[in-house]
Design a protein around this nucleic acid. Structure first.
Length: 523
RNA sequence: GCGCCUGUAGCUCAGCUGGAUAGAGCAACGGACUUCUAAUCCGUAGGUCGUAGGUUCGACUCCUACCGGGCGCACCA
């Protein structure tokens, strides 16, 4: 990765100058593009120890870099306000870009076996848009983690035991017998539909959820049944593990877990005084089972309506793993509000029930559904406007990106047809002295891709990829408008631009496949 | 009352784990199609980063308090 190489060379230079390793050196994009392509804060970090201004230090380091390292790296240094900026020589930038996808990216990440659990909706009703968000969040996160080298197992936990399930059975049974649905039962329109089918309601709902998720390419490696934990005694083994850990105790006729030892607000009941188990008890057993399956890392994605549950489950994991606080990460996805042309919608016109994920997919399509649900940080509540998502216009970011991709495809096809140049294998004729600012901007953005991916993966922030590819599209469209290709009369420039367009498409496809959004060749 | 998330342009949001003059899109206004897809591009305008303190050479970013929004606080699942 270029940023890593640059940092290494910078450290080489510092040790050659008898300055030890400086921690916290950052290599980042300068705020303004005309400052350079990379910037470092190293002079600020050295200033206190050397009792000199960052400006002075930066100037000295720049001089040393330019005489000893600049030519080798193809990066010319300059300093401004204490920052050291590096700028590609045009030839080096072109050469780097042209060979950028020759080898697979190498990420400085130790591969792990990861279990990613997400959605895990109760099979007592249809999926809603929030489930869609956890689904896309989980699916993209999984793809991202796989791309950087982890082994990821995707799991859906089916809550097919317990009270809610009984209530579902009771509700459907009542509907089948023509009796009124119990007060505390499920009243949605889907209950009537279930009643008319000769099916097991739970099995049917699970299958239905699977189909809806599969329709937007959200697939799982395991569908883990809660019931199966009871069937072969794993619930009891999990509870025994809590007792063995020393964090279980009996009081008031119940079995408690001392979660307050791990920062929870209060201790939690595992076995109630009537002898039945709490939902939490089963969840502890489930997570105990996950540990025993030999994963290095567990990640759960939950909706914000479950965040009150985080502390106790993390506490249980800590108790069962000898205080390994990092074993489990829980990502909380904030809730989604649906709008249509600025007005909030809650009900489906078709059924009169809540708008389901299936409704949304049917209305706006899989690509738009995935993109809209992934392109904002999971930490913020999402306002999802169905009107915008359907609009086939510039305010729709999905079409904007896909249009960019289609444009490249048709452009490259034209190049091949009219100029008899094969974009995938054409060789550069010469490196240039100067390139158009839009070419530079686009090329730089592509070179930043691996770092973007690594950051998104390590910080578990998949939405940054959506923003990256959106910006990539923007830079491409600008380049496209300002830099003619087919009609370009300068051969070397033309070949370079063909290469640039080709590499842009590579980068787009790389990102879109992580996002699970299609890359159409024609629109 | 306590906990988690959140407050950035009229609207929806970025802001790369403390760096340079805070950025996009939409909406508004003005331009560009006989020329590689105008589902596009170029330009103008738009800001006390909720408020007040603090830490720092440097704060949208970290800390404290307060204000506003969302969600959650069961021997329910």
């Amino acid at each position: 990765m270029i940023e890593v190489t640059l940092k290494r060379e910078l450290n080489n230079m510092l040790s050659a100058l008898n300055i030890g390793d400086v921690p916290d050196i950052t290599i980042e994009a300068p705020r303004q593009a005309d400052h350079g392509d990379y910037a470092t804060n190293v002079a600020f970090k050295l200033a206190p120890a050397f009792k000199k201004s960052p400006k002075q230090i930066a100037e000295q380091l720049v001089a040393d870099w330019n005489s000893n390292y600049a030519a080798k790296m193809g990066l010319q240094a300059s300093s401004l306000n204490g920052f050291i900026n590096f700028k590609w020589t045009v030839g080096a930038l072109q050469s780097k870009l042209v060979h950028f996808f020759d080898d697979e990216f190498k990420y400085a990440i130790a591969p792990k076996k990861i279990l990613l659990e997400y959605v895990s909706a109760n099979p007592t009703g249809p999926l809603h848009i929030g489930h869609g968000r956890w689904a896309v969040l989980g699916d993209v996160t999984a793809r991202l983690l796989q791309v950087v080298g982890h082994e990821v197992s995707k799991e859906f936990y089916i809550n097919d035991a317990g009270n809610q399930i009984n209530i579902l059975y009771d509700s459907v049974a009542a509907a089948r017998e023509g009796k009124p649905i119990p007060e505390n039962g499920y009243h949605g329109h889907y209950i009537k539909e279930l009643a008319e089918l000769d099916v097991d309601p739970v099995e049917y709902m699970v299958e239905h959820q699977q189909n809806v998720l599969a329709s937007i390419d959200v697939e799982f490696d395991q569908w883990f049944s809660e019931k199966s934990l009871y069937a072969d005694g794993r619930v009891d083994r999990g509870l025994q593990a809590v007792r063995d850990s020393g964090y279980g105790y009996d009081a008031d006729g119940a079995l408690w877990f001392r979660s307050t030892d791990f920062g929870d607000d209060k201790d939690r009941v595992l076995i109630k005084s009537d002898g039945s188990k709490t939902y939490f008890a089963v969840d502890v057993a489930y997570h105990y089972d996950k540990i025993n399956r030999g994963y290095d890392k567990l990640i759960n994605i939950w909706g914000a309506d479950h965040h009150g549950y985080v502390a106790r489950v993390k506490a249980a994991l800590a108790a069962l793993t000898d205080k390994d606080e990092d074993k489990l990460s829980i990502i909380i996805g904030q809730l989604v509000s649906l709008y249509r042309n600025g007005e909030q919608v809650r009900m489906s016109k078709r059924t009169g029930d809540m708008i389901t994920l299936e409704d949304v997919i049917a209305e706006i399509g899989g690509d738009a559904t995935r993109f809209f649900l992934i392109h904002k940080s999971a930490d913020t509540q999402l306002d999802f406007d169905l009107g915008v998502a359907t609009a086939q216009s510039s305010d729709n970011p999905v079409y904007y990106i896909q249009y960019g991709h289609a444009r490249i495809c048709s452009l490259l096809a034209k190049v091949e047809q009219e100029l008899s140049i094969v974009p995938s294998s054409v060789k550069m004729l010469a490196f240039a002295e100067e390139i158009h600012p839009n070419e530079h901007q686009l090329a730089m953005h592509i070179l930043r891709l691996p770092q973007e991916i690594e950051l998104a993966a390590t910080q578990l922030k998949p939405h940054t990829i959506a923003n990256y590819v959106l910006e990539l599209g923007r830079y491409f469209h600008s380049f496209y408008e300002s830099c003619p290709i087919v009609s370009c009369e300068h051969d070397a420039t033309r070949v370079w631009r063909i290469k640039l367009a080709y590499q842009t498409r590579e980068a787009m496809q790389y990102c879109l496949s992580i996002l699970g959004v299609s890359a159409p060749e024609r629109m």
